[in-house]
Design a protein around this nucleic acid. Structure first.
Length: 839
RNA sequence: GCGCCUGUGGCGGAACUGGUAGACGCGCAAGGUUGAGGGCCUUGUGGCCCUAACGGGCCGUGGAGGUUCGACUCCUCUCAGGCGCACCA
């Protein structure tokens, strides 16, 4: 039989473009992936539910391969769950507000909406071209008033509860983007977006009180089923919970008490100095009138000018200036000198610390530099710790010294005892401190959801009433940032009427951080056209939580933590019935090219749109899943793509041949010999693919198993044609290839399955392996002598251990290695191997 | 500096709870088909060595030790690469 020519167009050639278009039309025309909410007539109550969700894209330009990978992985899971009998909701939307569109507007003068919507259109087109099984009736974009109306509504709910507040605070300011940033958006002192060095400014800003949820954000990791360990660790570290004590040092001279946070109250008697951060509000007052006044002022100014980066630099020598004042150590009444030094951070603890040089490396360095006493208060059970460094580590049996009544007490015990004693004296208490700061959500930028607040001279800060939402983002002429929101120039919009007294008022001109928009989109998908509420409870209670969330690890802290916070806050308002939004999280690895991250400047990008035109969506999607385990990163290879294309064409040709040479009504009943062997391989593949997809996300090995099955069909088919059971086995195996390939290559799989079985593969339940066919009558017994492989012998699966040993000993090569030696041990692993240990 | 992850053929990777290392794909080689090329089909392909061949031996999962009848897998140390955190009191 003449083999098909895959170079020339025509009916004898695998033509992914034609096949993919045809099936996409079917899915579109029949709304195949649309799923009803509970209450709707077509809703199927008999099935369990699965919410499969990929992180929504930020629409900027065209989608890149990272998007394709994310949605290829998510779609495979969605398809698999559907055929496992779940009601699957698999929606899509766009995180449409944000800086890149606005920066583009500044350059081109084009409204950010225009560029954003152009980009959305190209994402939408690509998602369809890729054949992703999305329920398009649920599509949302966060920049649409019908969406951000509810973002504003949620803001007001948080405001009502005291979870949104305005406060003046030192904040991180990006001088290039001309806006404040959340702490989470400052990476090593630089703006996450543009890389500029951020500076600190004191500004009145809007915050969300995420710190109220710090403990629950930590504790509720227990409620999750499967999250990558490193993501949980990153969030834990970010929240940075420390247990310890707050200790009050009395400043009698000015009658100011200074509380400090410490994790080591057991070392309290070793405090020999006291340090304030340069930003500490009392620094100026303390220094006033002392000989150090000028020097302190100079130091504080210098610190304010120094970048966060410089201050945090590694191995930086300690600096500081005495304040000329003293505070009293509440433990022993000792007066200790005060300093201002920039190794103390205003944003951690109380912006002040007690210096215990004997037991803290930083304090040790500082004490050395300033010639301060170093008094050891904890010692190991024997031997002296070295003099030239702080004794920090906790060791077994260490005890307190120089600590009055606590001398001799084990350090671990002393932490509790000293804190209790301070509590009795009213000079301290047990305390927990967090690294996490409240979430700064206001931005001095245009392209975001306006904060729905009005300032009235008479009434003050007034929330916009719910029935006046949305506060529409007005069109403006000039997008350039000027240190305040470009909205401030839109006079007609800014000047408004106070909702409370009707008098003159002006609007808040800051917009919300885009992470606010994306903190609740997964809920809106469930009831996206609701005009009376952000969502209806029936739909949300049914679908939530997201059963499988898929996205890049770059959102490990920001988005994932904010969304968890929103979910908890909304649950507390009884608007939601779950505590955690994402029950299982999968983070896909980065695709690189030539070992480097793809970037336009490096010129090593690959265009999904072009690839899909050239090879078809099935090939590219399957290749991405086949490159390696999706959880790991992988390097792009054009040759690899061609290999997968060849495999697709091979499946396609096989299906045409099998259809021409076997009868659709045939059955593999009573298959013997090669026919049975082929059936066994098909069932092995079913079993393997199922186990690889479900808990493991090992799509690469699942696809490899299907390739093995295809190879087996090619090897055996010619000998089987003509025999009824043989025909049945070939046909069954080939349609099984289609069935198993469907989650990765849905178009080709639909095509092949329909050709051979006359039905829609997505309407068929996921195949189940027949246990009888997974069993084999014989197996290859590995025979080892002293752990080294010496022979492989075909053995009956039902053979006893003695029979296996006999077989092993009978092997000529084995006998050669046993020659003249004594067998001291015989190890038999039934179904696998025999190991003879000789001396 | 601290924490986590990863090191397997020429390449991407496989080996599920310790049990035949290298599945599958790429690349390469040979044969078949073809007017040629491409394509397709088949076979081979970790290194070194013995053998005319059949067959067989030794080494081999970054390195060094250890546990075990048996280690890519477990333990200790170490090297390399990646990621995260980084004066957090």
């Amino acid at each position: 039989m003449a083999e098909a020519d895959t170079n020339t167009p025509g009916p004898g050639r695998y033509d992914p473009g034609e096949i993919e278009r045809r099936w996409q039309q079917v899915w579109d025309a029949e709304s195949t992936w649309v799923v009803a909410n509970p209450g709707a007539p077509e809703f199927d109550t008999s099935r369990p539910k699965a919410y499969v969700l990929e992180m929504l894209p930020y629409p900027s330009g065209e989608p890149h391969v990272g998007h394709l990978k994310c949605y290829a992985v998510g779609d495979a899971i969605a398809h698999y769950r559907r055929r496992r009998g779940f009601n699957v909701v698999h929606p899509m939307g766009y995180d449409a507000f944000g800086l890149p569109a606005e920066n583009n507007a500044i350059q081109t003068g084009e409204h950010p909406r225009v560029a954003t919507e152009k980009s959305i259109e190209s994402f939408r087109k690509q998602f369809r071209r890729w054949g992703v099984s999305l329920d398009w009736t649920r599509e949302v974009a966060t920049h649409e008033p019908s969406y951000y109306r509810w973002t504003q509504w949620i803001f007001l709910k948080l405001f009502e509860r005291g979870l949104a507040y305005r406060a003046e605070a030192p904040v991180q300011w990006c001088p290039v983007d001309q806006t404040v940033l959340a702490n989470e958006q400052v990476i090593d002192g630089h703006c996450e977006r543009c890389g500029a060095l951020v500076v600190q400014r004191r500004l009145a800003q809007w915050f969300f009180r995420i710190t109220d949820y710090a403990d629950r954000l930590l504790a509720d990791f227990d409620l999750l089923d499967s999250w990558p360990e490193h993501v949980v660790t990153m969030q834990r570290n970010w929240i940075g919970r420390s247990e310890g004590a707050e200790v009050i040092f009395g400043g009698e001279e000015l009658e100011i008490d200074f509380p400090v946070f410490t994790t080591r109250p057991d070392t309290l008697f070793g405090a020999t100095f006291f340090v304030l951060a340069p930003e500490h509000p009392d620094v100026e007052r303390l220094a006033a009138g002392t000989p150090y006044e000028a020097e302190v002022r100079e130091y504080v100014n210098q610190a304010a000018r120094a970048s966060t980066e410089d201050r945090g630099a590694e191995d930086r020598e300690k600096t500081g200036v005495p304040l000329g004042r003293e505070v009293t150590n509440p433990a022993n009444g000792e007066k200790i000198p005060m300093f201002v030094a920039d190794y103390v951070l205003m944003e951690y603890g109380t912006g002040a610390l007690m210096g215990v040089p004997a037991h803290d490396e930083r304090d040790f360095e500082f004490a050395k530099k300033f010639g301060l006493p170093i008094r050891r208060v904890v010692v190991p059970p024997e031997g002296e710790p070295p003099e030239d460094q702080a004794y920090v580590e906790h060791s077994e049996g260490e005890r307190l010294i120089n600590s009055d009544g606590f001398d001799g007490m084990p350090a671990a015990e002393a932490i509790e005892a000293i804190t209790n004693w301070l509590e009795e004296q009213g000079k301290g208490r047990h305390a927990v401190n967090y690294r996490l700061r409240d979430w700064l959500v206001s931005r001095q930028r245009y392209w975001g959801a306006p904060i729905p607040i009005v300032y009235c001279d008479g009434c003050g800060m007034v929330p916009v009433p719910e029935d006046k939402l949305p506060v529409l983002l007005p069109d403006i002429e000039d997008y350039a940032p000027k240190g305040k929101s470009p909205l401030a120039a839109a006079d007609d919009w800014v000047l408004t009427e106070c909702p409370r007294c009707g008098g003159g008022a002006h609007r808040e001109t800051d917009t919300m951080d885009t992470f606010v928009d994306s903190s609740w989109y997964f809920i809106r998908y469930l009831d996206p056209r609701n005009e009376d509420a952000p969502w209806g409870r029936d739909a949300v209670d049914y679908w939530m939580p997201v059963d499988q969330y898929i996205g890049g690890v770059e959102h490990a802290i920001l988005h994932l933590m904010y969304a968890r916070f929103f979910t908890k806050a909304l649950a507390d308002m009884d608007l939601l019935g779950v505590q955690e939004p994402f029950q299982n999280l999968f983070t896909q690895g980065l695709i690189t090219r030539d070992g480097a991250k793809m970037s336009k400047s490096r010129g090593n990008t690959v265009s999904p749109a072009e690839l899909v035109e050239q090879f078809g969506a099935d090939t590219i999607r399957t290749y991405i899943c086949f490159m390696g385990p999706p959880v790991k990163g992988a390097d792009w290879s054009d040759a690899g793509v061609e290999g997968v294309f060849r495999f697709m064409a091979r499946v396609w040709r096989l299906s045409r041949e099998v259809d021409g040479r076997t009868d659709p009504s045939g059955s593999a009943d009573g298959a013997q010999g090669d026919a049975r062997e082929l059936l066994a391989k098909a069932h092995w593949a079913i079993d393997k693919v199922t186990r690889d997809i479900d808990p493991r996300f090992q799509f690469n090995t699942a696809i490899a198993a299907v390739m093995e099955l295809v190879n087996e069909i090619y090897h055996l088919k010619d000998g089987l044609y003509g025999d009824p059971a043989g025909d049945g086995a070939v046909r069954f195996s080939t349609s099984t290839v289609a069935s198993l390939l469907f989650p990765f290559a849905p178009h080709l799989a639909s095509d092949v399955y329909e050709l051979l079985e006359g039905s829609r593969v997505w309407e068929q339940p996921w195949p189940e392996a027949d246990p009888a066919l997974l069993e084999h009558e014989t197996f290859v017994l590995a025979v080892q002598v002293n752990g080294k492989l010496r022979d492989r012998i075909e053995a009956s699966s039902s053979a006893s251990e003695d029979e296996l040993l006999e077989l092993a000993r009978a092997s000529e090569n084995v006998r050669r290695h046993l020659d003249g030696k004594e067998i001291v041990k015989e190890v038999v692993v039934p179904g696998r191997l025999v190991n003879l240990v000789v001396r």
